[in-house]
């Protein structure tokens, strides 16, 4: 007999280990993090005004801000940031796409894994920067070699993330698909793809962080524009304020890109308990 009485059962907390600490709205407590940098900035500015420190090696915040404002006003900042962003975007797209394709192959097929993974792991052991001489010989000193270096830097973390995500899809969930007689394609689309999405998003975000790391390396090795060029130029001309301004621009740009990527991925991960959990990942 069907009963309308529903006995409330206790919430099953063990199923949601990610639910702990899920908080979307930043609380005033999050502002605690600003205390140290702001205190330092104010103290340093005051020390500079009082003539206690010399500004040549570490310029005071006011001068850095002025440099930033000048660079922005002249349009230079925008041009450099644009050049850097385009390089990161191209390298990230190439490296990320290749990593997803290869990672999907090695993650889902034991044969592909045996065939490809040893070679890729061996290549991974080569520090990415060590490719630079070869890339310059192959692609020249302009954009191509820089994009290639960024793509290589992005490739490996994303590849590992995607392969690991597919290999670790819960067998129990796959069995549900089998019980409902899903075809191979339907299994991939309806079970595997959604199951790996959170891990792939994390892998791509750490890949994006590495993309910014390698764009600096690429631009330091010779470029006529880009935030890395701004760094190098500041060093050669002894303009510490320009170096710090470029560092700040990098930080802001990296944070914005990561934030945009996370926001774009959020609709795909609505079902997860917490997005805050993964937002600490990133610049690796």
């Amino acid at each position: 007999m069907a009963s309308d009485v529903t006995i409330a059962s206790p919430p099953d907390a063990a199923r949601n280990p990610r639910g702990v600490g899920a908080r979307r709205v930043p609380s005033p407590r999050a502002l605690i993090g600003f205390i140290i940098p702001l205190t330092f900035a104010v103290a340093y500015e005051a020390a500079f005004r009082a003539g206690l420190v010399e500004a040549r090696l570490l310029p005071p915040p006011s001068r850095v801000l002025k440099t930033l404002a000048d660079l922005a006003a002249s349009g230079e900042l925008f041009a450099h940031a644009r050049a850097t962003l385009l390089r990161v975007a191209a390298g990230f797209a190439l490296g990320g796409a290749a990593a997803i394709l290869v990672g999907a192959a090695t993650g889902s097929s034991a044969f592909a894994r045996r065939l490809l993974d040893p070679t890729l792991q061996a290549l991974r052991a080569v520090p990415s920067l060590a490719w630079v001489p070869l890339f310059i010989m192959w692609f020249g000193i302009f954009e191509e070699s820089k994009v290639a270096l960024i793509a290589v830097g992005v490739f490996f973390p994303v590849y590992l993330g995607v392969m690991g995500a597919i290999a670790s899809v819960d067998r129990k969930i796959v069995e549900v698909g089998r019980v409902f007689r899903l075809s191979r394609v339907a299994m991939a689309r309806r079970i595997l793809l959604p199951a790996i999405t959170p891990d792939v998003v994390i892998a791509l975000r750490s890949g994006l962080g590495l993309g910014f790391m390698f764009v600096v390396a690429a631009e330091l090795m010779g470029a006529s524009e880009g935030l890395g060029y701004l760094l190098l130029d500041g060093q050669q001309l002894g303009k510490a304020d320009q170096i710090v301004a470029a560092l700040i621009a990098f930080a802001v740009l990296g944070k914005i890109c990561d934030g945009l990527f996370a926001a774009a991925a959020r609709p795909l991960l609505r079902w997860q308990d917490s997005f805050a959990r993964v937002s600490a990942e990133g610049e690796g």
């Binding site: 006995i7 409330a8 059962s9 919430p11 099953d12 199923r15 639910g19 079902w271 308990d273």
Partner: peptide
């Protein structure tokens, strides 16, 4: 609702 919002018995 999402499955995570259900109790064990409801799920």
């Amino acid at each position: 609702r999402w499955p995570r919002e259900l109790s064990g018995g409801q799920a």
